[in-house]
Simulated scan of single mutants.
Amino acid sequence: MSTINIPRESTMQEIAQALNLIAISVTGQTPEVSTWASVQRIVRSGFGKKAFPVGSQLRVQHETYGEIIWDVVAHDYDKDPNGRMEHSMTLLSHDCVINSIQFDNTEALYKAETTMAAGTYHFTLLAGYDTSYGGGKTLQFTLTKAVPAGGVVMFPWSYNTQSTATKISTYETQVSTTALETVTVTEGTGGTDLGTADGKGALNHTHRIRYGSSNWKESALRQMLNSDKAVGTFWTPQTKYDRPPTWNASIAGFMAGLPADFLEVVGICSHVTKSNGIHEEADELNSSYETQDRFWLASYSEVFGGMENNVADGTQYPYYSGALAADRIKYNSSGAARFWWLRSPNPWVTYSVRLVRPDGSVGSDYAHSSLGAAVACAIY
């Protein structure tokens, strides 16, 4: 009697996968792909460019944001930082996944390294900056309650508002949202001198006490995109002046709503982002730094190509090579063209982040503004 050897299920799967890869190699056509794991295998095999050419679309369902349509924007661009995988496929959401979200919030003026006693203090705003609204003035205030070590002093000087009309509020910690007290300011030099708000001494830079930080590495939005945790549980201060974003008590981590099988194939990638030329807490000015993320925002150079202030953060995605302005327009869930964040700063200020306007042109806005977010990731 003859014996028939029946292949194991795993062997049959490997055979089917091999046949799929042969079909791609011979015909250049994409076979039916039923799982994210099969997409990953095709990418790893080196046939991703044929199976999913730039401009192809894939879809995934998010529990909070609904269906996400991913555009394939590059191959072998975002790489495994450990060098284990030779091939990758970069995805960017076709439209804004999130309709409106703050990049980073207004920052603290001062952090108390030791207890800040009740009493009178004064500080000076950045010279030559927005002088029509009180820039450069020296302001004083009097606290009736001590600020404990680790607490912060806020001076949220708004756009087109006189600095003397802005009030000081103090908080027990960087994450506190209930003020210890709120007091008025007046012009004057009474009490203890806290210094000048230029980011060089004990005080934060004036730009950032008004409009937040344009640094992607330190941003609240970066934390949100790379977290799978619940509302209010994942944001932590990244600098001594950092404050909770306005959405901290209402938005869960982006990864929390994605299917497990999709997350299993999305890898951590290294990215270069430029720094501005005015002030940074930790990085060289007018330079660049590296982050490692599973989900991120595209950079100025990746969307528009080229450099700003002689610094590039990446190279242009093939998807945008030769693109018209209309090709860069993204819409919100209601179908309206939306401003959408990039991760790059406007290099000539410390508070402004690059974006794509609703007409597809480049622009910038305050980090504390709430705009759309188009999300990128890579499979390898």
Rank of each mutant, 00 (worst) to 15 (best):
W36L: 07
E63D: 14
A220E: 08
A252R: 03
V147E: 01
A108Q: 03
I379Q: 12
E302N: 01
V33W: 05
I24W: 13
P358V: 04
G55V: 08
K200C: 07
T170H: 01
W348A: 09
E63S: 13
G188H: 05
S219C: 11
S361P: 01
I251D: 00
E302G: 00
A149W: 07
H207I: 01
S93Q: 12
T186F: 03
S364N: 10
E281G: 14
D78F: 10
E86W: 06
L125P: 03
E9F: 15
F254N: 04
D228A: 08
S270R: 07
R243C: 05
S288H: 09
H75T: 01
T182V: 03
F103E: 08
A112P: 03
A23T: 13
A108S: 12
T35Q: 06
I251Q: 08
T233W: 06
V152I: 07
V265T: 00
A249M: 10
V147K: 00
L58R: 13
E281T: 07
T90N: 04
E284R: 06
T206F: 07
K49C: 11
V311L: 03
F339A: 12
V153Q: 08
G267P: 07
S213D: 12
L19R: 01
D198C: 12
I68H: 13
I209T: 11
V265L: 06
S213M: 11
E67A: 15
V231Q: 14
I268Y: 14
S158P: 11
T182A: 10
A197E: 09
H62E: 03
E172T: 08
Y351A: 11
P259V: 03
V60Y: 15
R222T: 10
T239K: 03
A179K: 00
W341P: 13
Q57V: 15
P358K: 14
Q316N: 00
S361W: 04
E9M: 15
D327N: 09
N310Q: 14
K137P: 10
K137T: 09
L355Y: 02
T64I: 13
K200S: 11
Q223L: 06
V153M: 11
M255C: 10
T124G: 09
Y159E: 13
G119M: 07
P358H: 01
P81M: 04
S370P: 02
S56F: 14
D95Y: 08
Q162D: 14
V26N: 10
H122I: 02
C269P: 06
D359I: 03
G305E: 04
P345Q: 15
R243N: 03
S169V: 00
L324E: 04
H205K: 04
S344A: 13
G360M: 02
V185A: 05
S132T: 12
V97S: 08
D359G: 02
T115F: 08
Y133V: 02
G232A: 00
W348I: 14
G55T: 04
D76W: 06
S334N: 02
V266K: 02
